[in-house]
Simulated scan of single mutants.
Amino acid sequence: MKILGLTGSIGMGKSTTARMFAEAGVPVHDSDEAVHRLYSGALAPLVEAAFPGTMKQGSVDRIELAKRVLGKPEALKKLESIVHPLVRADADAFLARHRVAGAALVVLDIPLLFETGGRGRVDKVVVVTADAAIQRQRVLERPGMTEEKFEAILAKQVPDAEKRRQADYIIDTGQGMESARRAVSAIVAELGGENSA
């Protein structure tokens, strides 16, 4: 079973690209989705213990949590030390299930793949990219996003040029959906074996 790591900076179209892999029949583990799910499960009491008052009705209140960690490197590090091991365990369980099921190719959608040293967990890396102006426009259209927040997020991500330099495959989502879909199909055909049937 080949493990393909999918990553890209904020606003580059990674989630849309992950859906294209899923539509092509490739099992996808979405780290962001896992965090959402775990925030309503195993992570909620752990986060509440570290950041009292962030749990509402048994789930982590993401807005309250963001107020506690954004722009506070120590708090963010503390949160990541709680979250990352559980997300990693969730991904490992996903890999084990699909290995048993005989999948030829799976995708681990890891937003901070390079930042968290995740390169060694995957066989190949796809980096999703777009022109900086397109990226900025997409991100600033998100509800609650500000220039300041965007810059803070960018500052802790490996620069796009460096990600592209380390990539095995690059998908430029600025070229439109059809172009991205063709790139996904080509990668699945190359790596997928029976997945690509």
Rank of each mutant, 00 (worst) to 15 (best):
residue 165 R to I: 06
residue 96 A to I: 08
residue 50 A to S: 10
residue 189 A to Y: 03
residue 126 V to E: 03
residue 31 S to Y: 00
residue 68 R to M: 15
residue 117 G to C: 10
residue 121 R to A: 13
residue 41 G to D: 03
residue 26 V to R: 05
residue 125 V to E: 09
residue 111 P to F: 05
residue 174 G to W: 00
residue 75 A to F: 06
residue 83 V to I: 11
residue 29 H to C: 09
residue 163 K to I: 09
residue 98 H to F: 12
residue 131 D to V: 04
residue 101 A to L: 14
residue 182 R to W: 15
residue 127 V to P: 04
residue 178 E to K: 06
residue 101 A to H: 12
residue 84 H to Q: 06
residue 38 L to S: 00
residue 56 K to F: 07
residue 180 A to Q: 05
residue 53 G to A: 12
residue 174 G to D: 06
residue 131 D to L: 07
residue 9 S to F: 00
residue 85 P to T: 01
residue 138 R to I: 14
residue 40 S to G: 06
residue 36 H to V: 01
residue 64 E to F: 15
residue 56 K to C: 05
residue 31 S to T: 01
residue 66 A to S: 13
residue 88 R to T: 08
residue 30 D to N: 09
residue 35 V to R: 00
residue 126 V to G: 11
residue 189 A to R: 14
residue 150 F to T: 04
residue 176 G to H: 10
residue 54 T to W: 06
residue 30 D to S: 07
residue 158 V to E: 12
residue 123 D to P: 10
residue 95 L to I: 09
residue 160 D to Q: 15
residue 172 D to G: 06
residue 74 E to C: 08
residue 15 S to Q: 11
residue 160 D to T: 14
residue 173 T to R: 00
residue 149 K to S: 10
residue 67 K to W: 13
residue 131 D to R: 03
residue 139 V to M: 07
residue 22 A to N: 12
residue 62 R to S: 06
residue 65 L to N: 05
residue 42 A to Y: 03
residue 5 G to W: 01
residue 53 G to C: 15
residue 29 H to R: 04
residue 11 G to Q: 06
residue 144 G to W: 07
residue 37 R to V: 04
residue 124 K to M: 04
residue 69 V to H: 08
residue 63 I to N: 15
residue 58 G to T: 02
residue 92 D to S: 10
residue 194 E to W: 13
residue 187 I to D: 07
residue 138 R to N: 13
residue 142 R to F: 10
residue 45 P to I: 05
residue 121 R to E: 15
residue 77 K to V: 05
residue 40 S to D: 03
residue 80 E to C: 03
residue 5 G to M: 01
residue 165 R to F: 13
residue 51 F to V: 04
residue 26 V to Q: 03
residue 80 E to A: 11
residue 162 E to V: 15
residue 195 N to M: 05
residue 3 I to L: 01
residue 5 G to A: 02
residue 128 V to T: 10
residue 143 P to K: 12
residue 19 R to Y: 13
residue 62 R to L: 04
residue 48 E to S: 04
residue 185 S to T: 14
residue 182 R to Q: 15
residue 100 V to W: 12
residue 152 A to P: 06
residue 164 R to P: 02
residue 127 V to Y: 02
residue 165 R to S: 14
residue 77 K to P: 03
residue 2 K to C: 07
residue 65 L to G: 02
residue 10 I to Q: 10
residue 106 V to E: 03
residue 114 F to L: 09
residue 95 L to A: 03
residue 54 T to F: 05
residue 175 Q to H: 07
residue 110 I to G: 00
residue 172 D to S: 07
residue 113 L to C: 01
residue 72 K to A: 08
residue 144 G to L: 12
residue 127 V to F: 05
residue 83 V to P: 00
residue 174 G to S: 04
residue 92 D to K: 12
residue 23 E to I: 08
residue 128 V to F: 05
residue 90 D to P: 00
residue 6 L to V: 01
residue 187 I to H: 11
residue 183 A to T: 13
residue 158 V to H: 08
residue 25 G to K: 06
residue 141 E to H: 14
residue 79 L to K: 00
residue 8 G to L: 08
residue 137 Q to E: 15
residue 97 R to N: 14
residue 61 D to R: 07
